[in-house]
Design a protein around this nucleic acid. Sequence first.
DNA 1: TTGACACATCGTACTAAGTACGGCTACTGT
DNA 2: ACAGTAGCCGTACTTAGTACGATGTGTCAA
Lengths: 218, 218
Amino acid sequence: MPAAHTSLSRDRVLDGALALADRVGIESLTIRRLAEQLGVKAMTIYYYVPSKEAIVDGMVERVFAQIALPPPELSWDQAIRVRCVSARRVLNQHPWAAPLLESRSAPGPDNLRHHEAVLACLRRGGLSWQLTAHAYAVLDSYIYGFAFEEATLPESGSDSFTESTTEIAAAFDPQKFPTLAAFAAEHVLSPDYSFGHSFEFGLDLLISGLVSAAHDAS
Amino acid sequence: MPAAHTSLSRDRVLDGALALADRVGIESLTIRRLAEQLGVKAMTIYYYVPSKEAIVDGMVERVFAQIALPPPELSWDQAIRVRCVSARRVLNQHPWAAPLLESRSAPGPDNLRHHEAVLACLRRGGLSWQLTAHAYAVLDSYIYGFAFEEATLPESGSDSFTESTTEIAAAFDPQKFPTLAAFAAEHVLSPDYSFGHSFEFGLDLLISGLVSAAHDAS
DNA sequence: TTGACACATCGTACTAAGTACGGCTACTGT
DNA sequence: ACAGTAGCCGTACTTAGTACGATGTGTCAA
């Protein structure tokens, strides 16, 4: 029996890693820094996890666990929409996660549960295997790509966004790149521009395309 | 005048870096390894580039330069389609590139040229700034996300693909994840399945959605 | 009570990577 | 002939992950 007053645990390590990555970014998530935040020395962490890779695996599982499953009471397309919007929101909260989600070699249980629910939803909607595969590949690519771009770009509307846009726009010759210059001046720098507004636009393009494809096939 | 028999140069460094990253992956691209491949010692590289970051910047520029610009003689939607297909092909050839393309803080000239051409194409097609922004955000997210997933997955049809799919499928309980199990068995493992086949399917969903949106607005 | 053992923590040190600093050499132009 | 410089590299510092083994503290059987 382990002592009851144990302070550290695998869960606490993962909690700390999540919090640290959210705060300082995944590239600054180091064992030594994590240890410091947890109030222990570096090597202590290796008593609970076998490697840093394993920590990242655990973090990815936590992220999957946060994504809403498609609600069974909705039509398949609405249910899928809900989970896609949720996925993007979760990836926004953990900007480091987008490049990692699909790059784990061994999917964990939350990952599997998630995939199962999405595939089941599509199949319940009557999509063929072929169309199911298309739908999944296409939607996830879009979500990851979009979330990744959001994570990379400075938050639109923020000062640093205006600043970096202006800076980039100032660095090139508007004669040589007239459309780009106009795009920046007339649209991107306008106060209600937001990169994120395009997410649901594109998502609905894809989903309504999938609905049509499902109808055509039946 | 520099000596004519100089062997190394910034271009050669970038050539070597591209080749090495294509061969061993970006995470194994180290200064020491690159130097070895170039037949020099590590510090020599720093005579031609200021930092590893600068090498990556240069590599990204090379990749942008390889992506076809939208051909002006085609209709805007067909022209955009050509450049999207080209972008995906280029990103397939350089699997390390997808996560890096949009993450550079200072876009280089090839990057700018590329963005200018795409924006100009969309505007020539009569799209509003709003729709242009949507189109660009949505298409690029999709392309990067898709290319990234392709880079992550083992090549479908290959032995390692069959192997890893079978391995993953064997690692979970088919009772608990019945749809996932059926998906693997009935579709993914069939000989003519390919993840990549979904690319043009989704691309055409997006583009025809954009065409409709452009019509509705005018 | 007394060992003996196991759990949890950590000190030290090795390896790999980026790169700062300054030295060496050979070719340049005067 | 000689000074200057272009190109190359040896050395070493820093930051990372983590292997190995020591240490301390509590538990339990005899």
